[in-house]
Design a protein around this nucleic acid. Sequence first.
DNA 1: CTGAAAGCGCTTACAG
DNA 2: CTGAAAGCGCTTACAG
Lengths: 336, 336
Amino acid sequence: MQKYTLKDLAKLLNVSVSTVSKSLNDSPEISTETRDRVKELALLNNYIPNGMAQSLKARETKTIGVIIPNVLDSFFAKALDGIETMASSLGYRIIICISNDSIKKEAESLSTFLSARVDGLIISLAKETQRNNDFSHIIKVINYGIPVVLFDRITTQLPCDYVSIDDFKIAKKATLEMYESGCKQIAYLSTIYDTSVDLHRKKGYLAAMKRINVKPCIINIKDYGVFEKNLLSALKRNSIDGILAADELSAIFTIRSVIKNGYKIPEEISVIGFTNGFMGEKFLPSLTTVEQYAGKQGKLSVETLIARIRGELTKKKVSTVLKSKILYRDSTKSLE
Amino acid sequence: MQKYTLKDLAKLLNVSVSTVSKSLNDSPEISTETRDRVKELALLNNYIPNGMAQSLKARETKTIGVIIPNVLDSFFAKALDGIETMASSLGYRIIICISNDSIKKEAESLSTFLSARVDGLIISLAKETQRNNDFSHIIKVINYGIPVVLFDRITTQLPCDYVSIDDFKIAKKATLEMYESGCKQIAYLSTIYDTSVDLHRKKGYLAAMKRINVKPCIINIKDYGVFEKNLLSALKRNSIDGILAADELSAIFTIRSVIKNGYKIPEEISVIGFTNGFMGEKFLPSLTTVEQYAGKQGKLSVETLIARIRGELTKKKVSTVLKSKILYRDSTKSLE
DNA sequence: CTGAAAGCGCTTACAG
DNA sequence: CTGAAAGCGCTTACAG
């Protein structure tokens, strides 16, 4: 199977490589007659330009590197979907790494992305990276001149653009609304502690508890293997009747554990989660949750990145904070 | 921010580009002294080799193109995860396209993958592609000499390797076991009709119904908007007490609709789905389902592809059909 | 309107 | 042990 090059086509047509190249690129320098001959032959021989050679000259690859912590979580799946859709509609390819929350994998993939000369990067930081507060690998990339956009799991310590939601505000609101609907003792539950989003949500929760003057209760669960046990003991110790869970999966696990142990939702315990995924939407009872606009965050990240690549942005970093909202469903009591 | 090239380093060190290149690649031709000087300077200046230039010479990109229909379905998310893990552990990058079940998007991304000169492709076909039975875009790729591995949504009409599970067999088994557990009238429900997997699962179901000599009942639902309505009318018309659903989401929708309308699961209606995702595992009742080994299919696809790329495989196409199994949970009556 | 030449950043066969 | 040269497959400034 021969892969034709410009040289091959040139030889076949008895013209120069320059002429072939210009013809294929619709240069006005070339006569229509020649252009048509070249194009016809190219088509006939299934000529496909070598993108690497083109990129080498053009000094851009039309490729974006994407790093997400995982793809099983519906938030990241939706974000990835948004990223891919927007990128491909703007003519960019996506190369992807799933960090599995490991800083090592994140850093390694950054290296291969750099050598692939991606035009830019979209990253949602690994848990480990946020816990260690170690951004040296990202700084290296930025110093190398590659634009970076962070989303969701972000940090303000880095000189780059980012996209997120108003985690603090919405967590506070969710807590207060559970309180207004009649919950006396609301807990904050998280399996993603040490991430930036968890931090802001927790702070929002704490602010609300302070406002209503109730002692806060934070339930951090390290591992889904001990989820039910930890949750139930916390429940009993503190007679909790409302739970703000930091992500979708932990919210569903909460509902499930609680129901299996005989509690009624929402009558005895209310639950609010984060992320609007199928699971929460279709669960029985369905989950009241914070709409995080995952797809939109993905799309905005791409738009911001590409604008940055094209130099359409001022030096000032752009930080887009989306206003989120609560999707009221069956895991909470009605406010009215 | 200067990006150093071999030339830059060579100039700084007063040696030739060849010497720098060889040093960096640990060529035994070079004296250790020179090698160390070169490496030190490279490190100091944050030299990152230009992968495009290297690939251009080496005629390989260490990049694999991946096309999946979507990433929200947990089967594909898990498969992607497996693909990424295996590929990165073998030193390959992944560029990804989400076809959204569109043949057009599939074909377009194939074009950009070809010009990016991916070393190989892993594809799970779009619904539209399977419905139209139009593989011309894939054939073009194969003829161009790029190895292709199909998984899950496959076709045997193409000269390429593939990975799948024994859909026919396991669907037949699932149907028969529902029958043995006491179901009299089992239906097959699908929202992914026209795909190869649906076809085989349906055939397995039909074979089982023939064996037990019961008139089959096939419920195809086009759109989740009309899911509940269509399902319920079918349920009433045929007094169905067992449902084999072709994927996870439709199985969950089935359970949900059925419960909301007052049926008891599994006492009145049994449900078996496909794919072992969180949603089915954590739903109440939890879903009895077919383990499709999504991650393993992804990993095997990569291994097969890379073996093929490296020329380690004989001309004969390898078709790996995994033996699947049923995960018994709460949506079916116990067999014992 | 067409083509020769240089160059993008590498690697490697060959010469010394 | 080191380097000059050719070449991977393109594009484009320049000459004619």
